[in-house]
Design a protein around this nucleic acid. Sequence first.
DNA 1: CATATAATTCTATATTCGTTGAAATATGGA
DNA 2: TCCATATTTCAACGAATATAGAATTATATG
Lengths: 117, 117
Amino acid sequence: MERSGAVAALAALAQENRLDVFRLLVAAGPAGLAAGRLAAALDLAPNTLTFHFDRLRMAGLVTVRREGRSMIYAARYETMNALLAYLTENCCRGAQTCGPAVCEPSLPARKRKRETA
Amino acid sequence: MERSGAVAALAALAQENRLDVFRLLVAAGPAGLAAGRLAAALDLAPNTLTFHFDRLRMAGLVTVRREGRSMIYAARYETMNALLAYLTENCCRGAQTCGPAVCEPSLPARKRKRETA
DNA sequence: CATATAATTCTATATTCGTTGAAATATGGA
DNA sequence: TCCATATTTCAACGAATATAGAATTATATG
């Protein structure tokens, strides 16, 4: 990730409602959540939410897919991890002290190629 | 760290010049850098830089101290790490897959209580 | 087709942001 | 004290941001 992409992602997350949206999507995992459900959960007007979704999407932090009448938004872990990598790039250069700082779905242990159980 | 603090830190970093400033400070370590040196390095007007320093300082991302005629700015790793922790909080809940995501000075291996060498 | 649901688009508006230029403050040295 | 250096403060301005209201598009169902 380069600087402009990092700034875009940071700006997208630098807003209370969007940060809430993104955290809910991260917690929701790859299945994502319908726009309406998020609107209800966060008590936001649907058009306001659309505005915020656009920001998140332009920053590459979420994806959308249509499912019937609903639009399902889901977190893009790849971008999130690239951002974390960019932010920690200048820290403890070369030392292993710094963890990889990765973000993965919260509830992945279902259909994975058997590991840890 | 709570949401408002995270938003403040994200907003502070969500600007090209400020992100550059912060990364240079992170790379510079606890010794920090004089405002003038950063102004020269980034080719920014001194008053513009003051504006950005204020944002970073209000977000708790940097500290200042006077040294002669110069103002020395330094990164606050503590806040940076709290932000990283907040961002990765909802990721792979409970799994060790996610690293600790910490940010420490780049060149610390000098006066530490002997470890790893 | 008519209607309800889900979400988006468009327009407007108050607020905040980033930069600039001029003036002011603080420190150190002759 | 006088002057240069280092940085901040103040005022102004165009640009971007976040929200709200009204109208529109898309999908499903009777």
